[in-house]
Write a protein that binds this DNA or RNA. Sequence first.
DNA 1: TATGAATGAGCCTTCATTCAT
DNA 2: CATGAATGAAGGCTCATTCAT
Lengths: 216, 216, 216, 216
Amino acid sequence: MPPAADAAVAPPPRSARGQRTRAALVAAARSVFEREGYLDARTTDIAREAGVAAGSFYTYFPDKQAAFAAVLESLQDELLAPGAAAPGPREQHPLAAIRAGNRAYLEAYRRNAGLMAAMEQAALVDDRLRAARLERARTFAERHARAIARWQAAGLVDPDLDPRGAAVALDAMVSRLAEHVFVHGAERTSLDDLTELVTRMWAGALGLTPSPRKEP
Amino acid sequence: MPPAADAAVAPPPRSARGQRTRAALVAAARSVFEREGYLDARTTDIAREAGVAAGSFYTYFPDKQAAFAAVLESLQDELLAPGAAAPGPREQHPLAAIRAGNRAYLEAYRRNAGLMAAMEQAALVDDRLRAARLERARTFAERHARAIARWQAAGLVDPDLDPRGAAVALDAMVSRLAEHVFVHGAERTSLDDLTELVTRMWAGALGLTPSPRKEP
Amino acid sequence: MPPAADAAVAPPPRSARGQRTRAALVAAARSVFEREGYLDARTTDIAREAGVAAGSFYTYFPDKQAAFAAVLESLQDELLAPGAAAPGPREQHPLAAIRAGNRAYLEAYRRNAGLMAAMEQAALVDDRLRAARLERARTFAERHARAIARWQAAGLVDPDLDPRGAAVALDAMVSRLAEHVFVHGAERTSLDDLTELVTRMWAGALGLTPSPRKEP
Amino acid sequence: MPPAADAAVAPPPRSARGQRTRAALVAAARSVFEREGYLDARTTDIAREAGVAAGSFYTYFPDKQAAFAAVLESLQDELLAPGAAAPGPREQHPLAAIRAGNRAYLEAYRRNAGLMAAMEQAALVDDRLRAARLERARTFAERHARAIARWQAAGLVDPDLDPRGAAVALDAMVSRLAEHVFVHGAERTSLDDLTELVTRMWAGALGLTPSPRKEP
DNA sequence: TATGAATGAGCCTTCATTCAT
DNA sequence: CATGAATGAAGGCTCATTCAT
């Protein structure tokens, strides 16, 4: 996939030195946002932690939210990793695919809990970041909707279900649950148990046929 | 259950005039929080909108968060109304109970969307309000867990399910979905469709038997 | 001594009830000023501690400083007690008189350390209270100057000394030392040692003849 | 003795421009504190008088008290100048040394009367500044105690005297007297007369032998 | 590009005092 | 006389962003 069109928004630094500085800033930003949350993070702290002057921050980012967006972008791959959202190899039984997807998502969430917390905050405060989060959720939902539709076509899932609606609802469930557990520390459970729980909810909600319809 | 113990922290106004002023402040606070969100709400605006001097705000609340808590408290009844969460009359079939509960919750959420948005914000920014939100979620979850257990006992719901886990997960789904739709304006659907969607998810996830088992 | 002329400034409460309320306020004020200092003392706290409404404070005092002045006035007797400042019975040898005076002063200071601290604060912040303090200091100085003059006349003290100047200087020494020790907690010593120290300084500074000039 | 360890708390400005701004702020602070006293001084006034934005004040000082401390530090040299406290050249007769020390102190006090008033205020209101003042007093006292001990060793001063106690007491006398006269405007005298008075008190209190003992 | 100082609008909170009842 | 609610001016401090060097 070629660089997206919106790459023009933030001209990438030409010099190697610029590349390095920018990378340092993104790393520092990640660390600071993780530690302090979106609102409490100060751009001067990010600059200091990156080892550059306060003003240099603005050489690379137009504002604080852009730095946050850059951090998220650098995580994009991890957060939207195939395992994290997609049903996996098509040959897999849906249950296995769902379980794998949920586990990957929950693991990624837990691994980046600090940032996810910051993201929740940011989404409730900054319009552009809110839009970005919705966009990400939409990506997930569409991917999942396609999988559900496929499973319906294969006779594995209740055909009356609206794939899109179900995907949205089930994604909502998993993401909120992850927030509850990993950000707010509610409901202490193991990642395994959590994975089983949401997988079971998915399965039931989709009316997943226990075994493929190969039987006569 | 009597009012929380820390209600004593803010002694209720002695005089009738004080009662009126306090009520005016709570009303104004609700309006301002709805309009501006938690972070952007200013105590001076609340005071002005209540028609009192800026300092009078502090006669009744130690700070902004206390005013917000007071607003939530005044909503408590509505948000925790039996319909909004409980399975309703015990004789009802679970599906009807779930549908009624979800509809009531979603209606209340939509009716107070501005405030709910403020609450999400507040919970991510203020520790005490976060704790209050978790407490509220717990109340819901426990109520629902009891209902599920009852249904299991009646042979209407998959007996292998952990009632508490299922309740937490399904509540998460509904609340996040409500936030998506009513706060962020994603996924435009009717309240009816939304109600049907989540009710169906509940039913499937619980393995709800369409009609009670009639075996002897 | 009949009531001073300035009693007119604050018309004494006529009713017995008023007398009691005023007394309660003065007692409460003393306690609060002692505990909080002049600046941090709140009139509402004084009223609450006196068991009256906030507004009642102003029935008895025009403002905060008046209440403080009233407290000091109620202490006047103690602070200006004969022992605390005067040379005592004229027949006494000066050294004994000085020692007794210093001891009485230091004891009174220590007993009322909290209030004295408040007084220092008040004097640096409120003009009227500053004037009152200077007036009190002047009273002391004059009394002591007279004693010194008397001792000079008796040939017991260096006749070249300016009685007024010496009195002012030595009073300054004692009052500042008391502040150092009892308010700021510097130089921990016993009251006995402190008394001996200042008495010795007085004696030396006055060129006090060890024993009366009765010898030939 | 190197600068106090906590000097590191406020890193000195890197650029020359920063040096200039900081100096301007300290000068402005001195002027404002002198004119308004510690409590009434406003940081915004200091900034305005320094010709910088209100926020720039906080680039150099965390708060008002730090600015005050910086002003005092810039006075340190003057206030603790050898002449102001020390007995001067060792060959000098104590009386001359004491007179010179007292005169220097009183002159410095009078020259900075506005600031000294602010300092008294500050010490009664701010804990850190109080501690600083006690520390300064201790420095004086120790220096004087050493001088007294030296004079005792030379047979010029009453050997029974506790050098430290005497130093503390006499310093207290002089500082309080200076405050009386220069801050509160009590007891109008000339600086010469004041110097003579306190010098005489010192001499008497120390039992200073008019001229060195000539015994072999 | 880098630097780091400068900017300045913005808002919460206190509390002595007043006043309607 | 008592009550207790209402008043409202005042100011310290933050920090994202800009800009002169």
